[in-house]
Structures are given as structure tokens and as C-alpha cells.
């Protein structure tokens, strides 16, 4: 019991992480209660992703990450690969849009300049080549021995490092896994929680229809632009329909996923095969328990090398599955058959 309490006590308490993690989960639950149903697996993937991010930064795991190189690599594997991949897979936009307090939505909708800037920066970062460069560049940047030294020694820089990994992970995996335009809007309407149609319908009916349960099931599909008459809807449109993220084809996505594997393998292998200790900050600050510095580095190298690169393979398999379903749907559309039309892509 005491070890449990010790484990879940944050090593370095951060209001920003606490508010972000619990806040986003609260909004998600509100969205679910308003009737947007992403399905069991999507919902679980989102909650698991957020909880993983919390555990590696706000428990005793963070202590081990600060004083053990290989645990630190594990922390970044979660922050930069695993947790953002799960969150992107969940495509939580519609649920979050429905769960967001109306006043917040109104405020954001009123800030036109914010939207403009935000979209410009976001689109700039989401250019395929730059996004991939940023993804592997950040790994290499924080693993530059001198920079790594400062980041582990200085608390503020340490948080900048972890936040940059988490945010960049979300950007990259969302670019890879965002639903494509191949998923026809009319068909997407049937896939609850996936498309903007749902959230707009929910939002719209919140003010017009008292019965929540009928909301999502209603098949009323009016043109989006006509629906977007007030601030709330505009916000929901912008956030959930996601016209902002560049729509990459399956081919380009898989190409990028393969491309980012190579530098990650090189970085990981370099750590693994190095005969000298590259990061002396763990000796300088002391390790969480006695372990040979080279063993620590080799374990860290393996984590950077194999599971990190495997994430690309997993994402590519997911995309492949979607592609096959899209093709199946297309052929079904030519010969209408209700039983397969509603099949969900993962």
C-alpha cells in the first residue's frame, strides 16, 4: 500500500500536466455523456493514451526517468510514440468538441486573430516533410550530449523537453492517422463519433431537442454550412471536421512512416553499439540504483531503436487495414449491401 502511494506521488508536481490531463479527460467524459459515442475501443484508446502520459510524468516513474537513461528513453517512447498514437487513433475531436463548455467555445469563436494564427502555425508544422523532420529532429536534438546534459540538470528545460516530445508526438501521429477524405462524409455520419456531423448535430440539438439519446441516432443530415449559424457550431466545425490538417494519401503516409524509421534506427543503434558513455549527466547526477553506465546506455539504445521503429510498422498496418476497408466500401457502394457498409475502420 505504501509503495503504491509512493509510486503515485508525483516526483515533481506540475499544475500544467495535472490540469491538462484531468481536464481533457473531464471534457471527454462530458462529451460521452452528451451522447457522442466513439465506441469502446476508441474511447479506451484515448483514455489509455492520456493516462499513460500522466503516469510517465506525474508518478515515481518520472524519478526513474530523471536518474536512469534507459527509463528516460522509455518515458520518451510513451510521450512521443505510444500515447500520442493511441490518442490519434481515437480521433477524439468530436467527443471533445461536444464536451467542451459552451462558454469556452464562444470565447474561442470570437477570437478570429487567434484562429488565424493558430491555423497558420499548425499548417506550417504539418507539412509532410517538415513534420517528419521535426519528429526525428527532436529525438536527435534532445539526445545531443550537451543539450541532454542541460535538459536533465535544469528543471525548466526538462519540462520543455517533455512537453515538446508530447506535443510533437500528437502532431505527427494525428497527421498520420487522421481520417482521410476517402471516408465519405455521408458514410462517416453513420460512424458515430468520427465525423463532424455528429458533433454538430449534438451541439445543434442540445439547444433545440431536449432528448439527448435520440440525437446521435437521428439521421438528419443537413448541409454543414447552413448549420453553422452561431459561434458554437463554427467552433465545432473547425475543431471536429478538421479541414485544417493536410489530407495525405495512404501512400504518402506510409512513405513517411518508413522514412522516419531509418534515422531512429541509426540513433538507437549508435547508442547501443557505442563503446563509450555518451551521456555523463547520469553519472554526474547519480543513478537511481547502481548499474553499469554502458548497460544503461545499451538498454536505452535498444528502446530508441526497436519499439520506437516498430510504432511505424504498427501505424502502417493500421493504415493498410483502413485502405482495404475503403476499397471494400467502394466496391460495396457499387453493389449496395447493408451488412458491410457500416463496418468501422480502426
Amino acid at each position: 500500500m505504501q509503495t503504491l502511494i509512493q509510486f503515485f506521488t508525483p516526483w515533481e508536481f506540475s499544475w500544467l500536466v495535472q490540469v491538462s490531463c484531468w481536464g481533457v479527460l473531464l471534457i471527454f467524459v462530458r462529451g460521452l455523456r452528451r451522447g457522442v459515442q466513439p465506441g469502446f475501443w476508441r474511447g479506451s484508446a484515448f483514455v489509455l493514451g492520456v493516462l499513460l502520459m500522466y503516469v510517465v510524468t506525474q508518478t515515481h516513474f518520472d524519478y526513474w526517468s530523471q536518474y536512469m537513461f534507459f527509463v528516460h528513453r522509455g518515458q520518451h517512447l510513451v510521450l512521443h510514440h505510444l500515447a500520442p498514437l493511441l490518442i490519434a487513433l481515437a480521433a477524439p475531436g468530436a467527443v471533445l468538441a461536444a464536451g467542451m463548455p459552451v462558454s469556452v467555445k464562444r470565447w474561442f469563436a470570437g477570437q478570429n486573430w487567434l484562429g488565424r494564427w493558430w491555423i497558420a502555425v499548425y499548417r506550417f508544422l504539418q507539412q509532410p516533410f517538415l513534420a517528419s523532420l521535426l519528429f526525428v529532429g527532436l529525438i536527435a536534438f534532445w539526445l545531443t550530449p550537451d543539450i541532454h546534459f542541460d535538459a536533465m540538470l535544469n528543471q525548466r528545460l526538462y519540462w520543455v523537453m517533455n512537453w515538446s516530445m508530447a506535443l510533437d508526438g500528437l502532431l505527427f501521429w494525428w497527421l498520420m492517422l487522421a481520417p482521410t477524405s476517402h471516408q465519405h462524409p455521408a458514410a462517416a455520419g453513420d460512424r458515430q463519433g468520427l465525423s463532424a456531423f455528429d458533433s454538430v448535430r449534438v451541439l445543434n440539438s442540445e439547444e433545440t431537442l431536449p432528448a439527448r439519446s435520440s440525437v446521435v441516432k437521428s439521421n438528419r443530415s443537413s448541409p454543414l454550412d447552413r448549420l453553422a449559424t452561431n459561434a458554437d457550431e463554427k467552433w465545432a466545425l473547425a475543431s471536429a471536421r478538421d479541414r485544417i490538417t493536410p489530407q495525405l494519401s495512404y501512400g504518402v503516409r506510409m512513405l513517411l512512416l518508413a522514412a522516419i524509421m531509418v534515422p531512429q534506427i541509426i540513433i538507437g543503434a549508435r547508442l547501443f553499439f557505442s563503446r563509450q558513455v555518451l551521456f555523463d549527466v547520469y553519472a554526474v547526477c547519480g543513478r537511481a540504483w547502481p548499474i553499469s553506465p554502458l548497460t544503461d546506455q545499451q538498454l536505452g539504445g535498444l528502446i530508441t531503436w526497436i519499439p520506437a521503429a516498430m510504432m511505424s510498422v504498427i501505424a502502417a498496418l493500421i493504415l493498410l487495414r483502413r485502405l482495404l476497408h475503403a476499397q471494400a466500401d467502394q466496391s460495396v457502394a457499387e453493389q449496395p449491401d447493408q451488412s458491410t457498409a457500416a463496418r468501422e475502420p480502426l
Binding site: 524519478y63 530523471q66 536518474y67 536533465m152 540538470l153 528543471q155 554526474v284 547526477c285 547519480g286 543513478r287 537511481a288 540504483w289 547502481p290
Partner: peptide
């Protein structure tokens, strides 16, 4: 003290 200077120690 070790925490204050962001260092640590541990026993085998």
C-alpha cells in the same frame, strides 16, 4: 539535499 541539487543516490 540531493533533491535540491537534482542529484540522487541508491543502494544495491
Amino acid at each position: 539535499l540531493t533533491r535540491r541539487y537534482r542529484v540522487t543516490y541508491g543502494y544495491d
